[in-house]
Each structure stands twice: as structure tokens, then as C-alpha cells.
Design a protein around this nucleic acid. Structure first.
Lengths: 376, 376
DNA sequence: ATGAAAGCGCTAACAC
DNA sequence: GTGTTAGCGCTTTCAT
């Protein structure tokens, strides 16, 4: 016995030792009661449980994890995706000023993934640890998460791939929505959506079904493989229809927010030459911003200009006209991520080693009012 | 030195010992490099960091937590709130069959709270561990979460209060949306919303502003303080207007789902006597279900019957007619929960002890089409 | 500025 | 079925 406390010590949080002592068994038995109840005589078990209850004993997850080398927790790291504009509108809504862009309207990317992962994790008996990147921590976010989970998913561009590279030697990591970045020195599993396919199909729809030919594409200034893939799809559809397009989007914005989208629309409309028949945005938030601009300038959507987004966030259905967009199966992505992690974990437990997996989830075009498919 | 491995051992995940050995310092120094970088000479620090990097070293959260008695993680336990109906509709949407009740439409209660907590937690440098109750685990959900976090929030009715009672002696716990259950032996902090106020105000609106007097209220069969409070508000408003009401809701359903709401509407309409002018439901999902029923039976909302919900979930805005409801500030609740936990934690660190806090967040009535406030 | 050593609370052989 | 005994990988005085 390593330690003994008075019979009525209450100050510290109770441990196995306290429970063991008070119930007249060894710490091993206390441990068994929790880990493998059937291996303990019923009577003993009840006694231990009773003592535990009245002592307020809760097994320390840390100690457990340390001793058993596993935590029963999966993780998710995501970037601080918050759109300042969406935020403020949401705040206003919550404050009761308006009904406009509701609190709940702003359910973003990461929320969906969280939902998907949580569900799947629960099915497999795991809990989920979530953490958004916070700039300037001494220890990087991943390290913190990585150290507390059995495996985790990372939304692309949250963390330098190099760092993940290192960590993935230690535990399963799946990269979400990202690029399959590095070439070969890459142990990471990877799930992405068919960005190019989606944008291509949407563009084709605009061209063939609505007969539009003067299109303008708004992309992202930063390097982002997903966004680039979308643009690629756009270009392919245009070329296929014999419409000439440059190698670059008509405009690249610094942030993919509503404000930037609104500004982009201004810029595009103020450009000399014929007005575009359709404005295609690399995400929904920008498209929503553009809707504001067009409304303010007295242009009707879709009669005067069609507008499309990408992502299929909830907000895209709430705006008027409802936004035609490409829906990403983000929830499913979360679920698949967990399935992958769980499989990896059991592989490792059995000493198996399989090659990294890379899967692509299909997307679907949501034809709504902003392209002219439904009454505005 | 407790352990030594060959210079090129790669099999196991590296620890402080490995890093220390390879960089010619003690494990204490390695630890300092991460915990308190400035206390280590720059040159030493760089060397250690370099070795760590190429070894793929990540500090074990478990070991850290065990040694330092804190995890840097806050938790949230919530019940498996999933509405089977909403689920299936969502699945259909995700599968691409329809645009109807979108995946994202189904953003529920818990999602909002998660969002709020995550944001606030991040601000304070914490990560968030989330876990929904899974029936029939050997160890209860809470115990698992409790053992891995510094403090946590629990959605009411997820866990027996008694169990929380015990745990709260050990770490801060805040009860969400619940009742202030026990009487005095209660150390738990507690955040609720003004259920009665909201329902009273909504009811008053129906009576005074729309001149309705034949109302029917649909409640919940299970014991639920929140839902009871809503009913209480309803009763108060009726009495204040001189409308007679019984001590019981006109109907109590077994589950607060869309299907049950639809059934409840049937039942109410089939009742002998004059048809009610308004159907008030204890939550949005039931109200949405009722909308289906009324539509199928050819009754117009709000002309023939007004319908109201409670909660303000995203779906409430998407249905036609949009649902008049009482919006709960669920996101804010999550934020407040974290603030409370963080405060408690710092109190404990300083040896302070304060009385349990109980706060009530205000709600607001969202007047939409289903009560006649806007064009349907 | 750095090292030595004592735990943190639990699990997992291995004995009995 | 139950007890003994090593660790698990880190933080943290206390020395130096």
C-alpha cells in the first residue's frame, strides 16, 4: 500500500486506493470492477461500487489512458472558419433585432462534419474531441489534440502537412476535404469531395439548360486545392461548350466571406463591357454577399443575372432567391472519417499495415431559384 | 535513466526519454521546453525541438494530465436527441432525392450548444469533448467524460442528477436547460431559459393580437420541467385573458417528434366540439408534424388554424408557413456554460468556494406566418 | 540553466 | 476470484 489517508479525508478527489481501502480489497479489484465486472464476485463488486458511489469516485481518464495506451476518444481539428459577417448577423438575430440571418442559419462546414463524426463515433463507442485552430499557441493545436486521442481527422489547411506527417507515424490521421498534398511520403488517409465534378456539372447546367454563355467566376486568392479544383471544373465545362475562358478566375478574393462576395459582385458589374449573365462563386457565403449587392443595385436574380454558390450550407436555402449550389456531403464525410479511423485502429491493434486510403465522395447540384430553376 | 532503447528504435511512439537521450539532456529539460520554453537556454531548446521533430514526438496528453492534474479540456454530455423522422428526411436529402428537409435543416438543440461552447472554450484555450448518451454502457457516459475533462456541462435529463451530484464534488459541473432539480444538496451550477415567460408571451400574442380564444396545448407525457414550465406560461396567459384552462395540457404525447405532432393534430381535430383556433405545441418538431397533418386535411394555416412551436430550430423557418415560435438562445447557453466552468476552475485553483449559480436566459418570440403575422 | 527523483491514478501481467 | 508489482509518460520540487 502506497498511501493511506485518514478515514474521513474528503479534501482530495478519491482514487482507486481510497476505494480499495474503504472496501477492503486491492486496487486491482477496484480496477476490475470497472474494466471487467464479471471477473469479480458479485458481492465484492457491489461493495466496491457502493463505496465508490459514496466517495464520489470517478476513474481518471488520464491515468487510464496512460496505463492502457488508449483513450476511447477521436479528435477533429478544424480552422477558425467563422465568417465575421455571418457572425454579426447571427448576433443581431440572437439579440432579437431581426429574424433575418438566424443564429441557426449559420451552420457551417465544420458543424456538419462534427455532427457526422459525433454520430459515427458514438456508434463505435468513442467520444469526440473538437478543437479549432487558435493562432499563436506555443504548442500547436494538433499536438494538443493528438496527445489526447486515439486518432483524429483534420480539416485541410488547419495544420502544416509536414506536422501531420510526423504525427501520423504515431497514430491514425485522416485529412478531410483537402488535397492529397504530398507526393509519396504520405501516410495519411484522405477524404475529399468531387469538387471539379460538381462545379463542372453546375456550370454545364447553366450553359446548356439555361442557355447562358457570359459567365464570371470568383475564386480565392490563397492557395486552396479544393477551390482550384472547382475552378478547374468550371473551365472544363466552358471549354466543352466552346466558351472561351482564361486560365484564371475572373476575380480572386482574399477571404471567402459575404462581405468579399458583395465586393466582388460590385467589381464584376463595374467592369467595362457586357454584363455577365451569371456569377459563379467558389462558395455559398460569397454568393449570398453578391445577392445583397445585386439587390441593392436593382438587378433581379435570376432574370438579370444568375448567381451560384458552392457548399450547400443552410444559409443557401434561406436567402431569397434560394441559392443554386453544389451540395457537399459534409456530414457523410465526418462519418467516413470515423469509419476510417476505427478501421485503422483495429488494424494497428492486430499488427496489420495497410496502404493509405484516399476516397472521393460524390456531390450533387441543388437547382434552386438563383439560376432560374424555380420561381424566385 | 529508467529505460534505454537502441539508437534507431522506431517501433514505439517516442517519449520524453527518447528525446532526452538523443538530445543529451534530461527529461526534465525536455518537459521544460514544452511547458516553459523561456526557462531553457535557446540553444538547448532548439536542439531538443529538432530531435523531437524528427523523432515524431508528441507529448502524451494523458501523462500530462495525470502529472499536472488538469486536462485543458471541457466536456459536454447530451442525450441522443435525434428525431427519427428528421433523421430519415435528412438522409433522403443527403442522398440527393430531395431538397426538402435538408441535411442541414436538422440542426438541433445540441448542435447549437456545441457551437457556443466550442467558441467560448477556444477563447479560453480549452478544447471541447462531446459525447451523447448511449444506452447500456457498463460505465455511464458521464463517468467517461468526467474522467477526461476539467469540468463539463450536461444537458438536462441526460444523466441521473444523483450521479452528477457525486461528480460535482470533484469537478465543476453545470446543468443545462434543466430544472434546478434537487432542493438543497445541490452543488451544481445551472443555466436555464425563461420557458414560462416565452410561452406566456406567445400565448398572449395569440390571444390579444390575433383575437384567438379557443386554444389547444400539446405537452409531453414524460416528466420534463422545461416542458412543464412552458405549459405553466400558457396557463398563466390564458387565465390573465379570462380564458378557462384545465390543469393539464389538452394532450400529452409520448415523444416530441414530428410523427407524434402529426398524430396529435389528428387527435385534436377529431375531437368532438368546435375546432380549436390555435394549436400550441411544446416544441417545434411537433408543430412541424402538425403542419403536415393540417395540409393533408385541407386546413389552411393560419386562416383556419394557427400553429405555434417552441425552440426556434432552423427547421422552423424552412417550413411553409414559417413557424411562429419561441426562440431559445441555445448558443449563448453554451457560451455561458463555459464561462461558468472557467470561473469555477479558477476559483478552485485559488481555493475559493462560491455558492452555486443559477441563471435564466431570456427568450424571444419569433412571429412568423403560422400565427398570421406574415403572409403565408 | 539543468538534473535527479518522486509521484500522478490506473492497468496488466503474474502469482496465489 | 483476488492481491502484488511494475510500469505508462509526464510534471515538479529540490538540488546543484
Amino acid at each position: 500500500m502506497r498511501r493511506t489517508r485518514g478515514p474521513h479525508s474528503v479534501s482530495t478527489t478519491p482514487t482507486v486506493y481510497d476505494v480499495a481501502e474503504r472496501s477492503g480489497v486491492s486496487i486491482a479489484t477496484v480496477s476490475r470492477v470497472y474494466r471487467n465486472p464479471d471477473s469479480v464476485r458479485a458481492q465484492t463488486r457491489e461493495r466496491v461500487l457502493a463505496v465508490a458511489r459514496d466517495l464520489g469516485y470517478v476513474p481518471s481518464g488520464n491515468a487510464r489512458g496512460l496505463a492502457s495506451r488508449s483513450t476511447g476518444v477521436l479528435g477533429l481539428c478544424f480552422p477558425d472558419y467563422s465568417d465575421p459577417d455571418a457572425e454579426s448577423e447571427a448576433e443581431a438575430g440572437a439579440g432579437g433585432h431581426g429574424d433575418e440571418a438566424d443564429d441557426e442559419a449559420a451552420m457551417l462546414y465544420s458543424d456538419q462534419i462534427i455532427r457526422g463524426m459525433e454520430r459515427a463515433a458514438r456508434r463505435h463507442g468513442y467520444a469526440l474531441l473538437i478543437a479549432a485552430s487558435l493562432k499563436g499557441g506555443p504548442e500547436s493545436l494538433v499536438a494538443k489534440v493528438a496527445g489526447r486521442v486515439d486518432g483524429f481527422a483534420v480539416l485541410a489547411r488547419t495544420v502544416p502537412t509536414e506536422e501531420l506527417e510526423v504525427i501520423s507515424r504515431r497514430q491514425p490521421v485522416v485529412m478531410l476535404a483537402g488535397p492529397r498534398e504530398s507526393n509519396d511520403l504520405d501516410h495519411l488517409d484522405h477524404i475529399e469531395v468531387a469538387n471539379a465534378d460538381g462545379q463542372r456539372e453546375l456550370t454545364r447546367h447553366l450553359i446548356e439548360d439555361h442557355g447562358l454563355r457570359r459567365l464570371a467566376y470568383v475564386g480565392f486568392a490563397e492557395e486552396s486545392p479544393d477551390v482550384e479544383a472547382r475552378f478547374r471544373g468550371y473551365v472544363e465545362a466552358c471549354r466543352a461548350a466552346g466558351i472561351e475562358v482564361g486560365a484564371e478566375p475572373d476575380l480572386r478574393v482574399a477571404m471567402m466571406t459575404q462581405a468579399e462576395g458583395a465586393r466582388a459582385a460590385e467589381a464584376l458589374l463595374d467592369r467595362p463591357g457586357e454584363r455577365p449573365e451569371a456569377l459563379l462563386f467558389a462558395n455559398d457565403q460569397m454568393a449570398v454577399g453578391a445577392l445583397h449587392t445585386l439587390d441593392r443595385r436593382g438587378l433581379r436574380v435570376p432574370q438579370d443575372v444568375a448567381v451560384t454558390g458552392f457548399d450547400g450550407i443552410a444559409l443557401s436555402r434561406l436567402v431569397r432567391p434560394a441559392l443554386t449550389t453544389v451540395r457537399q456531403p459534409m456530414r457523410r464525410m465526418g462519418e467516413e472519417a470515423v469509419e476510417l479511423l476505427v478501421r485503422r485502429l483495429s488494424d494497428r491493434a492486430q499488427g496489420k499495415t495497410e496502404d493509405p486510403v484516399s476516397m472521393t465522395l460524390p456531390v450533387s447540384v441543388a437547382r434552386r431559384a438563383s439560376c432560374g430553376c424555380r420561381a424566385a
